[in-house]
Amino acid sequence: MLPHDGPVFEREMGCTADELRGWLPGACQGAALAWRDGGADVTLGAGRLRLDWQVLPPRRIALIELPRLAVCFHFEGVTDDERCRFMRRFDLCTQRGGG
Rank of each mutant, 00 (worst) to 15 (best):
M1T: 13
M1E: 13
L2W: 00
P3H: 05
P3K: 06
H4D: 04
H4V: 07
G6E: 12
P7C: 02
P7D: 13
V8D: 13
V8S: 13
F9P: 01
F9H: 12
E10P: 03
R11P: 00
R11Y: 02
E12S: 08
E12D: 06
M13E: 15
G14C: 01
G14Q: 12
C15R: 14
C15A: 11
T16K: 08
T16C: 04
T16I: 02
D18K: 12
L20H: 06
R21V: 02
G22A: 11
G22N: 10
W23Q: 13
A27S: 09
A27L: 02
C28P: 06
Q29D: 15
Q29I: 00
Q29K: 07
Q29F: 00
A31M: 03
A32Y: 01
A32L: 07
L33A: 04
A34V: 09
W35R: 11
R36F: 02
R36V: 07
R36H: 14
R36P: 00
D37L: 09
G38R: 08
G38V: 00
G38P: 14
G39F: 05
G39R: 01
A40C: 05
D41I: 05
V42W: 00
V42N: 09
V42L: 05
T43K: 15
L44Y: 02
G45D: 05
A46R: 15
G47N: 11
G47E: 07
R48M: 08
R48H: 13
L49G: 14
L49P: 12
R50K: 08
L51Q: 03
L51I: 10
D52Y: 00
W53G: 05
W53A: 04
W53Y: 15
L56C: 09
P57I: 01
P57Y: 08
P57E: 14
P57S: 10
P57G: 09
P58D: 15
P58S: 14
R59A: 14
R59N: 04
R59H: 11
R59D: 10
R60H: 12
R60C: 12
R60T: 15
R60P: 00
I61Y: 07
I61S: 03
A62D: 00
I64T: 06
I64S: 08
E65K: 10
L66F: 08
P67F: 13
P67C: 07
R68Q: 15
R68F: 04
L69N: 05
L69K: 05
A70G: 08
V71C: 08
V71H: 04
V71T: 06
C72I: 04
H74E: 11
H74N: 12
H74D: 13
H74F: 13
H74V: 09
H74Y: 13
F75D: 06
F75G: 09
F75V: 03
E76V: 03
G77S: 12
G77A: 07
T79V: 05
T79Y: 03
D80Y: 02
D80E: 15
D81K: 10
D81M: 01
D81W: 00
E82N: 10
R83N: 05
C84I: 07
C84L: 12
R85Y: 03
R85V: 03
R85I: 00
F86Q: 07
M87F: 03
R88M: 06
R89W: 01
F90W: 13
D91P: 00
C93G: 03
T94N: 15
T94D: 06
Q95D: 03
Q95S: 08
Q95P: 00
R96Y: 02
G97S: 07
G97F: 09
